[in-house]
Amino acid sequence: METQKKIMVLCGGKFAFPALQLLAYEKFICAIGIGKGNERIVDALERESEGNNFGFKSFPDRKSIGEMRPWIESIQPDYIFCISFPFLIPESILLYGENKFVNFHPGPLPQYRGSMPIFEVLKNQETKTAICAHFMSSKFDEGNIIFNDPVVIEEGDTYGKLAVKLSQRMAQVALNMANMLQFANSIPNQPQDDKLACYYEKPELSDTYVNWKRMSAEEIIALINSCNPWNTGADASLFGEQLKIISAQVLNETHQCQPGTLVSITETLNVACGDNKQIAVKILSCDEGIMTADQFIATKKNELNKLLIN
């Protein structure tokens, strides 16, 4: 019987937990490394590693990556899986073995390179995304593709919902990859088509801000969903305040108001958009805290009524 392959997993936090659990259950894992995790997650992974006789090491910053090659040499894994590991792994470490490092990117490649493809696919109103397994190179997200495993984006998916869905799917994808490496003599792969490539930098305020005049109601909802919960919603100037809209839906009713102004108050706050549609704001965050539209209306009743009169 062929000896079980030993796989080291480099991860960045709880997104990788389902994959770690399944790979451990199937007895593939030999060691776990975590990059820049919070203390609670680092402690939890270290305890689990000790309990299962896995190697364990924390890489809290870029400088600590210099300790990785000696650690890998001491463990001698057959392959190294990366799941949301936050640091670029240099060529000097990749030279441990050709096609020994496999990254699992939570977005289709080469179209969605970058650290937050979940945000980008939702903001761009994609109907599907993917988990891409690819061999690693010394540049982020540019190694040869093994496969893109498609994942449907359902209506109403937020960043949080899609992240959980991808995390759960990642476990099976990682296990499939481990089994391929266990039994295949070679793994088919192909270079990425740079003509299709797009690299997205980490979102800034300009990327999360609602432009009432230029964005359609559907684009605004997509932005809100893509910012929930990591940014506590989409940033917006509304009712004379700087707010974050956490949950809203398109209201297919026309209006005669300036985009970004209050059209009406029902159980929701109904706001004019540039395409002559409205969005119904359900949950938002303001200086007083996170609250439902009803709670915000009760708190700001006089100010909102003045806006409607004007």
Score class of each variant (00 low, 15 high):
K14E: 11
P229W: 13
A272H: 05
K63I: 15
G156I: 04
L22R: 09
D193G: 00
K128E: 14
T254K: 08
M1E: 14
V173H: 05
W212K: 10
E48M: 13
V263F: 06
R214Q: 12
N228T: 15
K139M: 06
L223N: 05
I29M: 01
S64I: 08
I34L: 07
K213T: 15
A178E: 03
G274S: 09
E155M: 09
A217W: 02
F56V: 01
K63L: 14
A19T: 03
F54I: 01
C227G: 04
G66Y: 03
E50W: 07
I146Y: 00
S186P: 01
A236P: 01
L122W: 03
L109V: 11
G13N: 09
D207C: 04
I93W: 00
K195W: 08
S137L: 04
A248I: 05
Q4P: 14
F239T: 03
T268E: 07
S285N: 07
Y25W: 11
K165H: 10
Q192A: 04
A222I: 09
N53G: 05
N302C: 12
F101P: 03
P110L: 06
Q295F: 01
M215F: 09
E2Q: 11
M8H: 04
G160D: 13
D149T: 09
F17E: 09
I245D: 05
S206R: 13
E26Q: 13
M1F: 14
S115T: 15
G143E: 06
I41L: 13
G274E: 03
I118V: 15
E218L: 04
I41R: 02
I89T: 04
N270M: 08
L243P: 00
R69V: 09
S49C: 15
N144T: 10
G260P: 08
A184V: 04
Q249S: 05
L22N: 06
D78L: 02
T261L: 00
N103F: 02
E154P: 02
D194F: 12
V281E: 06
